[in-house]
Nucleic acid binder design. Structure first.
Lengths: 348, 348
DNA sequence: TATTAGCACTCTCCCAGCCCAAGTGCTATC
DNA sequence: GATAGCACTTGGGCTGGGAGAGTGCTAATA
């Protein structure tokens, strides 16, 4: 790995210029073009020398002998690190984002709008994920009797998220059994962390097993049916703006695979959780996604954890082509991440 | 509009052969090719004559003078009408569909899996929509107090669908106000059609307005906040298999517009409801979508209403290229539509 | 009379050949 | 150290000439 210190002032400037030119044109950048647009008035020959050095350092590549240079992942990496300091969001973006997210009153909707607005500002794919953390506290449960031994379980958590789950049970419980069970849970466990409720419930069921107890029987049935699965990390995953990718000059095959991958929302969620974690504060730019997901060659992920206080409650990201407006997108992602914290803090 | 009676036996056979050949190859079909594959051993010249007639009748088109013929919308229409009689589902499809849908215990999941399996069997986009009909009966409501004047309303309907809605109210109601209100509704209105609940509630609120009544105040707040919006035709819309379209030899521009349209699920829902209605029994094949949605040139919609008894409770459809395996897709759509009825009938 | 064979014609696709523009590396010079 | 000059490389675009597939028309045929 070449020492970034090797990069002097002039190198840096030329590299930046190459990356930016390539981002906006998509054509390999030649020494002549660069010399013309560069205010410093360096001659093409000089620039060629510098380019040769940069190519040695692994920052540039040539599609073929007589073509211009194309930035490598390493160059993007360097470029992003360079600009990441001077990030201030444009007023236009700010207005758009605020207008879109204003008045959202629940998390679901916030996430959905976020993925939408991200896809708008970035010309990439906007992703927003909400983690229903395992630390959710129970507020209220309700069980509804359905035909064919089925029961609908509704669990409301303190943070205002509603889970519903249709279950098929081994034995038929009638609505009054269900009400009794729901009352028992509501009275004994309101405010408990859901996974604790499950543990305690399990303990009590075990304990009482010997005696015949209709209530405990019901609870056991419901427990086994997964009535309290609300503590599982069920995720709300919103992916939007796939159409933005279609404009890209990808080959068809890869594009199709990419779209397919993005349709499998679980995979997108896994991808994000692989690269974003709570500890890291700010926006993260992942270049070189093809190592994890081959069809994402030439794509980058710009994401941030969405925290409420210390706890990670979601993630948001843009998946877009390496040739994208990084500054723009990074600031937008970071801005929304902050809004998220703000919204959910007043929520709790 | 040419009279189908004009089409004789030979014409029909040749037209069918052209459509099928074109579907499988994607190339304009020439007289020679056809003559070779046709068992009747007609000479190319004869076939050319017939083709000329069919072209006059508006069934065939030529991309350019010396190219083969390509079927028009009219030809597809005719072809589909021809084959629609002999529709029996293939065992392979049947197995795949049954395996995928087996064990689905709630409607949501059924719809999701349906859209998935439709996209699998048809190489097109699978769409499944559930209408939460206005005739839903109330089973249970619950209101949860949240920070900042917000209230979470949870409404469970008899058919086992759960609606939740976060609302911001003008005045703060505490949890005990909310419980009182919920109890009032549960005790008075269980089993009522939700829109009737709303009407009656409104009436009672009006009536009691003169006197000061804390309960009525709460109910009014909640009502105005939209607590009982569960009767609105909120829809579950599942669209899957967009990746299948990318393989198509569309021009980029149109493909992008198409993907964009499919991402706006509301529009997809509108499209379906425009073409499918309760009265019609079976699968409907809509050819010539570009009249409604320009970017859908060369696409067809194969859809069916999903009924439970007489009532239309959803729709399912495949949106795919005109060049698709109609027989296959039509039978699959029809098969799933029947399963839907079966599943939800035992549900009610 | 319906079918077929023959023929001249049309059009697209593909390939080879050619030139041009853009870019490079190297060397000599300022 | 920066620049100018020069010979060299390479992909893209343009052209022209088959080859192949297909057509419409006319004349011959069962």
């Amino acid at each position: 790995m070449p020492n970034p210190g090797q990069i002097g002032h002039r190198e840096r400037e030329i590299l930046t210029a190459i990356v930016e030119t390539y981002i906006s044109t998509g054509e390999p950048v030649g020494s002549r073009t660069l010399s013309r647009q560069n205010k410093d008035g360096l001659s093409p020959a000089t620039i060629r020398n510098v380019m040769a050095d940069l190519a040695d350092g692994g920052f540039l590549e040539q599609p073929h002998t007589s073509a211009g240079r194309v930035p490598t992942s390493q160059a993007y990496r360097y470029y992003v690190d360079q600009i990441s300091g001077r990030a201030t969001i444009s007023p236009a973006d700010q207005t758009l984002i605020s207008d879109t997210l204003q008045g959202t009153v629940d998390v679901q909707e916030f996430l959905e709008r976020t993925s939408h607005v991200l896809s708008l500002v970035s010309s990439g794919v906007g992703v927003a994920i909400g983690n229903v953390g395992p630390k959710n506290a129970l507020e209220h449960v309700y069980f509804s009797h359905q035909a064919n031994n089925r029961v609908l379980a509704v669990v409301v958590t303190k943070s205002g998220v509603v889970h519903d789950r249709m279950m098929r049970l081994d034995h038929d419980l009638d609505q009054s059994d269900l009400n009794t069970a729901a009352n028992y849970i509501n009275e004994n466990f309101r405010g408990w962390i859901i996974s604790n409720v499950k543990a305690e419930l399990r303990r009590r069921i075990e304990q009482e097993r010997s005696e015949y107890d209709r209530l405990m029987k019901s609870l056991e049935e419901l427990y086994k049916g997964g009535a309290l699965a609300a503590d599982e990390p069920a995720k709300n995953i919103f992916v939007e703006g796939v159409a933005n990718l279609v404009g890209n000059d990808q080959d068809r095959e890869r594009l199709r695979d990419l779209v397919k991958t993005l349709e499998e929302k679980e995979r997108v969620a896994d991808l994000l959780s692989a690269y974003l974690d709570t500890r890291q504060e700010a926006v993260r730019v992942v270049i070189g996604l093809e190592e994890a997901v081959p069809e994402m060659r030439n794509f980058v992920l710009i994401g941030a954890p969405a925290r409420v206080g210390e706890e990670m409650r979601g993630s948001l990201a843009v998946i877009g082509p390496t040739r994208m407006d990084y500054q723009h997108t990074i600031t937008a992602v970071s801005y929304i991440a902050q809004l998220f914290d703000k919204l959910l803090n007043e929520n709790t």
